[in-house]
Simulated scan of single mutants.
Amino acid sequence: MTDSLNRRGTLLAGCALAASLACGAAQAQQDFPNRNVTLMVGYAAGGAIDQSARLVGQALAAKWGQSVVIENRAGANGTIAAAAVAAAKPDGYTLLVTATSHTLNKFVVKGLRYDVEKAFVPIALTVDVPNVLVVNANSPYKNVNELVTALRAKKKEFTYASQGVGGIPHLAGEMFKLRTGTEMVHVPYKGAAQGMTDLVGGVVDMSFPSPGSITAFVSGGKLRPLAVSSNQRFPYLKDVPTFAEAGISDFVIGTWHGVLAPAGTPPAIVAKINADINAIIQTREFQEALVAQGNVAAKPVTPAQFATKMSSELKAFEAVAAKIDLSAN
């Protein structure tokens, strides 16, 4: 009888604990956020990732009725910010805004202080765009063929800028060299904005940034886009051919922006942030603001779908990194 009562008591206690945890999770989701949230950006202010992060932050602040602080911790291809978020309390109040290079860092940054996959929980995608080959508007090269011809002539040393070693623009530059059988010197910067400034100033010859980094320079007549790295032409650069149209096959690479949380963040909070961001990226106001930056909103995905996308990229980047030295400057 006593054993039966003890078992019953244990069962009731277990049920009570489960109910308490469920209520606690629901309450956490309902109450979140009740104070400021920090979106940590691993790139310099003014670049495409920073710009889209600020749009997301503004929209979330309006939706949540809480301040959303953008904190830029540029450097080391976004790994400084990523390491800080990986070590942050997993409560949803410190989030990482990053890009495709986050997964690529596994293969190009030695001694990473975190596991690219295990240290984070993917939450939502915000931007998904191709990369663009651009040159200075005063450059003599009007199309990809003229540029490749000059590169092969080797009458001078050509350079290309990127936002950092191991980033997608760096990967794109090295892929371009492989596809065209040409040579260029990689010039890495701490952010996209500085690289674009030097490209406009004639310090470097070309770059492979995302559209958001070049919009103002293209419309201002400072930069000339030559090709986009997608299967179809980019809607907001309709006159710019794809690499395939320009004569370079098998050159498709893009950049996404997304939000990650530290591993261990409660699923209820992850689900709430995902739902709120997905609602934001589907609004006309947000999409038009992104277009003004030269970006395109991503299609809404679940955290699981985002995780699958990152896992697929890791496999693809591992294969490419085996052929290309992405750590070389």
Score class of each variant (00 low, 15 high):
Leu55Arg: 06
Ala74Glu: 15
Thr308Asp: 13
Ala48Asn: 09
Leu171Asp: 12
Ser4Glu: 15
Leu39Asn: 11
Pro90Gly: 04
Ala192Asn: 07
His257Leu: 13
Leu151Ala: 02
Gly202Val: 09
Thr308Ser: 08
Val240Ser: 10
Ala83Val: 03
Lys323Asn: 08
Met184Ala: 08
Phe32Arg: 03
Glu313Ala: 01
Gly75Pro: 00
Gln287Gly: 01
Val129Asn: 15
Val127Met: 07
Tyr141Val: 11
Glu174Val: 10
Ala246Phe: 13
Arg224Lys: 15
Gly258Trp: 06
Gly195Asn: 12
Val37Thr: 10
Gln163Lys: 00
Ala172Asp: 07
Ala119Trp: 13
Ser101Met: 09
Lys222Gly: 01
Thr242Ala: 10
Leu11Thr: 09
Lys106Glu: 14
Gly167Cys: 03
Thr182Tyr: 04
Trp64Gln: 13
Asn131Arg: 07
Lys106His: 06
Gly195Glu: 09
Pro241Gln: 06
Ala298Lys: 02
Gln293Thr: 12
Phe120Val: 05
Thr215Met: 11
Ala193Cys: 07
Val56Glu: 00
Thr283Leu: 08
Val301His: 04
Gly65Trp: 07
Lys106Val: 05
Arg7Thr: 13
Ser207Cys: 05
Phe286Ser: 02
Asn34Gly: 11
Ala82Phe: 02
Ala124His: 10
Phe234Val: 09
Arg224Val: 09
Val296Asp: 01
Leu60Pro: 00
Lys142His: 15
Ala28Ser: 06
Ala119Arg: 02
Thr265Met: 07
Asp205Ser: 09
Asp91Pro: 08
Thr149Ser: 11
Phe286His: 04
Phe107Met: 10
Arg7Met: 15
Ile248Tyr: 07
Leu39Trp: 10
Arg7Phe: 12
Gly24Asp: 14
Leu5Val: 12
Ala26Met: 13
Gln29Thr: 11
Leu147Ile: 06
Asp91Gly: 03
Leu60Val: 01
Arg233Ala: 03
Leu223Met: 12
Val203Ile: 15
Ala227Met: 02
Gln51Gly: 12
Gly195Gln: 13
Gly173Ile: 02
Ala275Lys: 07
Leu199Glu: 04
Ala124Asn: 06
Gly92Pro: 09
Ser213Arg: 00
Pro303Phe: 15
Lys177Pro: 00
Pro169Leu: 00
Gln30Pro: 02
Asp31Gln: 11
Gly167Asp: 10
Phe158Ile: 05
Thr197Val: 15
Arg233Leu: 03
Arg35Gly: 14
Arg35Ile: 04
Gly9Thr: 08
Ala307Phe: 09
Ala319His: 10
Gly9Leu: 06
Glu174His: 06
Leu55Ala: 01
Arg179Pro: 10
Ala192Leu: 10
Met40Gly: 02
Ala44Ile: 05
Ser101Cys: 02
Gln287Arg: 14
Asn329Gly: 01
Ala304His: 05
Ala61Cys: 08
Ile277Gln: 02
Trp256Cys: 00
Ile80Glu: 13
Ala246Trp: 10
Ile168His: 00
Ser230Thr: 03
Val127Lys: 09
